[in-house]
Lab assay of single mutants.
Amino acid sequence: MQAFVKTLTGKTITLEVEPSDTIENVKAKIQDKEGIPPDQQRLIFAGKQLEDGRTLSDYNIQKESTLHLVLR
């Protein structure tokens, strides 16, 4: 499924993900596309910070959801 990641600069990245993907996995995909190390990434969805060990389905993130990427 497709999900979108919006950065603070307003850029939107499109990712191909599965509901079973972990947040860690998603961060690795963002690193592949953008070169941002996962340890600098914080992903926010519905106002919550997403934890590495959880999956997209844990957070009820469905296709075409938009996550927000904040860098630390």
Rank of each mutant, 00 (worst) to 15 (best):
H68E: 11
E51K: 10
E64W: 13
K63Y: 08
R42K: 13
P37D: 09
Y59D: 01
N60H: 09
T7K: 04
E64I: 06
V70P: 01
K11P: 04
V5S: 01
K29R: 06
T55Y: 06
K11L: 10
V26T: 03
L67G: 01
T66N: 05
I36T: 08
D39C: 10
Q41P: 01
S65L: 08
K63I: 07
T9N: 13
T55F: 06
E18Q: 13
T12N: 05
T7H: 06
S65G: 07
Q49T: 15
I36W: 14
G35S: 05
D58C: 03
E16C: 13
K11F: 09
E18C: 11
V5Y: 02
Q40L: 13
D21G: 03
F45R: 02
G35P: 02
E64A: 08
T14A: 09
I44T: 10
T14M: 11
Q49P: 12
R72E: 14
K63E: 12
E16V: 12
D39M: 09
P38I: 15
E34N: 10
Y59I: 04
V17N: 01
Y59G: 01
T7L: 15
N25T: 13
Q62G: 15
E16H: 11
Q62T: 14
L8W: 15
R54Y: 13
I61M: 05
R54G: 06
I36C: 04
I61T: 03
E64S: 09
F45A: 03
T55P: 05
K33P: 02
V17S: 01
K11I: 10
T55V: 07
K27Q: 02
L8C: 14
K48E: 13
K6H: 12
N25Q: 14
Y59N: 02
A28M: 14
Q49N: 11
L69A: 01
V17Y: 04
Q49D: 14
K29A: 06
Q31A: 13
E51H: 09
S57W: 09
V70T: 10
Y59M: 03
D21A: 06
K29W: 04
L56K: 00
K29T: 03
P19V: 08
I13F: 12
Y59W: 02
K11Y: 12
H68F: 13
H68R: 08
K63A: 15
E18M: 15
K29P: 00
N60L: 07
S57E: 12
Y59Q: 03
Q40N: 10
T22W: 04
D52K: 04
K48Y: 10
Q2C: 08
E34I: 15
I36P: 04
E16S: 12
P38A: 15
M1D: 03
G35V: 02
L56T: 02
V5G: 01
R72C: 12
T22M: 07
S57K: 12
D58S: 14
I36S: 04
T14V: 14
L43M: 03
I44Q: 07
I44Y: 15
F4R: 05
K29N: 03
G10D: 05
G35L: 05
I30W: 00
V70S: 08
A28P: 00
R42L: 15
Q31Y: 15
R54C: 09
E16K: 09
D52N: 11
Y59A: 02
T22V: 04
Y59K: 00
V70H: 11
G10H: 04
K48M: 14
V26D: 00
K33N: 05
N60M: 07
S65M: 11
L69P: 00
K33D: 03
Q2Y: 13
S65R: 05
Q40H: 11
H68A: 06
L43D: 01
I36F: 12
L50I: 04
D52H: 06
T55A: 06
P37R: 09
Q31W: 15
N25I: 15
I13Q: 01
L50W: 02
I23L: 05
L71E: 08
P38F: 12
M1F: 15
Q49K: 09
Q41Y: 14
E16N: 12
K11E: 08
I36Y: 13
V70G: 05
E34S: 14
E24C: 06
E34M: 15
I30K: 00
I44P: 00
V26M: 06
L67C: 01
A46K: 14
R42V: 15
F45T: 02
I44A: 06
D21S: 06
S57D: 09
T9V: 07
F4N: 05
I30T: 01
L69K: 00
P37K: 07
P38E: 07
R72F: 12
R72P: 13
F4T: 07
T22D: 03
E24H: 11
E34C: 12
R72D: 12
K63D: 15
L67Q: 01
E51N: 07
E18R: 14
P37F: 06
I61P: 03
Q62C: 07
D52G: 06
T14E: 10
L71W: 09
L43I: 10
L56Q: 00
Y59L: 05
A28E: 11
K11W: 09
A46F: 09
S65V: 13
K11A: 09
T66H: 12
D32K: 12
G53P: 06
E64M: 10
Q62I: 13
Q62A: 10
